[in-house]
Design a protein around this nucleic acid. Structure first.
Lengths: 205, 205
DNA sequence: GTCTATACTGTGATAGAC
DNA sequence: GTCTATCACAGTATAGAC
């Protein structure tokens, strides 16, 4: 009698093709904009005919959905990687968290548009793809709670300030530094508001 | 010899048709989303065939452009109408200005998306249509300057806070009140930051 | 001048051959 | 699983009736 293979080579191959398609989709989105993504452009990039994509994704929105889930999952990993190295001093830590999210978003507007705005007309993420974004939000809440910022409203205002900076940068000064230059000041405003103690360690010589 | 008519009835009629088309375009945008606006849907609503729209607008983007200019011009008038009635006390005045913009935006997401976000792929407003938006921005700057908030960075942070509230409301809690409820608190945070004096007059009995 | 009729290109999506 | 063929409908543009 034949044994059961421990690896499903077909499923692995299938998953690899899906990942290849998603990678191509991100390339197209970054190059031409999230909303300009077409099945033809993705198919061309992976060397397929457009209808062949339907063997791997049920629809164009299913591709968006997978991108949404993958985008948040990747950012979640990124957070787990850089958070341990951040300074412990509350204001410096807030600045670093905000700066990271801001830079990450501005460096990849397609990522921010798909994951944090509503630029794709009929697209609503499925519960499965939405899960990693909730995990990121919980992570942020935990970070703020560790600094003594516990109430939900204060967390929401944090989202407003950081998100507002990114939105303003992308909408009003794409490619510039106008709102990036305001980040530290905005974080100070927030830190004062939630009553964080003034910085204890000096940073300038 | 014939006299020259003081009214150009043809031009008036033409302008009326343009206004009718724009009104229909706004209806469609509000109903189905800014990006879902199609020439067919607009033509259907005004009782025309799609190609007839080209007699009044050079392209679909020209319609977006006219909507952009009209949207800001209308809001500018709205500002001139309500600003005189606002309280003079700085913090109350800031709250009122923020609340007005927030409510106006949330009540008409299509307006906010077209005028303050970048939801329409290839659309860039022309200089002419952009002018009224600059006028609104100058008006806001003047309002803040009258309260002693003069430096440009502080104005930018005002835009970040108010815009961030609207963005978060539309993206994270469409139809809800989650960020609307944080508006007064966010404005207080900003007022504290720019050093506005505490409110002098009591409002509660 | 204004509108209708029509054709052209490109898009998402489906059916069926292999 | 991938392909060819095809559909319905979007935006664009031209020709011609009135």
């Amino acid at each position: 009698m034949l044994g059961t293979p421990t690896r499903d080579r077909i499923a692995e191959r299938r998953e690899a093709v899906r990942a290849e398609i998603l990678s191509a989709a991100w390339d197209v989105a970054r190059e031409h904009g999230v909303a300009q993504l077409t099945l033809r452009s993705v198919a061309d990039r992976v060397g397929m005919r457009p209808p062949s994509l339907y063997s791997h994704f049920d629809s164009k929105n299913a591709i968006y959905d997978a991108m949404f889930g993958q985008g948040w999952a990747t950012y979640l990993e990124e957070c787990h990687r850089y958070l341990p190295g951040l300074p412990a001093e509350p204001r410096a830590r807030l600045r670093a968290i905000a700066r990271h999210f801001f830079d990450y978003s501005v460096a990849d507007p397609a990522w921010y548009q798909l994951l944090n705005q509503r630029v794709v007309p009929g697209f609503e993420p499925t519960a499965e793809s939405y899960a990693p974004s909730v995990a990121v939000m919980e992570l942020f809440k935990g970070q703020l709670a560790a600094l003594g910022i516990a109430d939900d409203a204060a967390v929401d205002i944090w989202v407003v300030v950081v998100g507002g900076l990114v939105d303003a940068q992308l909408a009003n000064d794409p490619g510039g530094e106008r709102y990036a230059a305001l980040l530290d000041r905005a974080v100070e405003m927030y830190a004062d508001h939630v009553g964080l103690p003034p910085a204890t360690t000096r940073e300038d010589p």
